[in-house]
């Protein structure tokens, strides 16, 4: 058997893949957080809950409505995005003029209420969600067996990350977003409906989280608390990457996922905390974060 640094190649590759999968979720979630924070100046604590809502929406669409995975992949983000838009319009938008800490506290409460509600109705235990028939099985890559669904997660999340980046950097809507991030009042004075833009942005961020949730449903189990620990890791990812850059959020997400996977191989005891340790080190060496512009 091939060994690398005293570790079987198979195990190394396996954990690298797990790291890449986790990294896909970190990237999707920190991307959404960064987009929302950029424009709304709100740290969306409910991001983990919205991720969970995405997974649950897929599960319920399947079990109640008989809607398959592929439609759920589109429908769940739309449903969660719509829900987020209503929350933004009716409640969150009242907090923009206040200290940003209130936005954090509000979305924290929102997350607790959503997660509590789902736990009340569906219990704390996880529910399986089968991957679609087109994506079952595994392919032999020579050095390892790659489960098809896991390969799909990496490709799909990468595609969505790139699409989001293109949307923000290369389109007219993205130009509005970037400009409104700098000076929302002037953009509105130009005739752009900035309040609507804020609603759409929050819905977009939540939709991205829900998309990640649907992707995650067949990998992890669907449970009400699946997002609550994840969101804290994503916060650390965002602190490491700095929220000033969309690309930074994406790259940091994948990078830290892989580092976490490698830690599982070489020093499993630390795999839970390695991202937090990296965060602490980055804060000591470069407080603004790897890609951060703001002090």
């Amino acid at each position: 058997m091939t060994m690398i640094f005293g570790v079987p190649l198979q195990a190394l590759m396996g954990q690298l893949l797990v790291g890449l999968i986790n990294g896909s979720f970190y990237a999707l979630l920190s991307l959404g957080l960064a987009i929302i924070f950029g424009l709304l100046r709100v740290i969306n604590f409910a991001h983990g809950a919205q991720y969970m809502l995405g997974a649950f929406a897929a599960l319920l669409l399947l079990t109640v409505g008989g809607v398959n995975y592929w439609f759920a992949l589109i429908l769940a983000p739309l449903i969660v995005g719509l829900f987020a838009a209503v929350i933004e319009r009716t409640m969150l938008s009242r907090l923009y003029k206040l200290d940003p800490l209130y936005g954090l506290l509000f979305t924290f409460g929102l997350a607790l209420a959503i997660e509590g509600t789902f736990r009340y109705f569906y219990g704390a235990s996880g529910k399986p969600y089968a991957p679609p028939p087109q994506l079952t099985g595994a392919v032999n890559l020579g050095f390892m067996f790659l489960p098809v669904y896991r390969g799909w997660v990496v490709i799909a999340s990468l595609a969505v990350c790139i699409a989001s980046w293109v949307l923000i950097e290369k389109t007219k809507l993205g130009a509005y977003l970037r400009a409104a991030t700098e000076n929302p009042v002037l953009v509105q004075a130009f005739g752009v409906n900035v309040p609507l833009l804020l609603t759409l942005t929050y819905a977009l961020g939540a939709g991205l989280a829900a998309f990640a949730g649907v992707l995650a449903a067949p990998v992890y189990q669907v449970s009400p608390l699946m997002g609550s620990n994840l969101i804290i890791i994503v916060f650390a990812v965002v602190v490491v990457g700095g929220m000033g850059s969309i690309l930074g959020a994406i790259v940091t997400g994948y990078l830290l996922g892989v580092v976490e996977g490698l830690t599982k191989v070489f020093y499993p005891e630390a795999s839970n905390i390695v991202i937090f340790v990296i965060m602490a080190i980055v804060l000591i060496l470069r407080p603004a974060g790897l890609f951060g512009k703001e002090a």
């Binding site: 907090l95 509000f106 409460g109 929102l110 607790l112 209420a113 997660e115 509590g116 009340y120």
Partner: peptide, 15 residues
Amino acid sequence: PVTIITGLVFMVCVL
């Protein structure tokens, strides 16, 4: 579950 109430109280307080 207490968390539902806790969450709602949070939201009401902030708003």
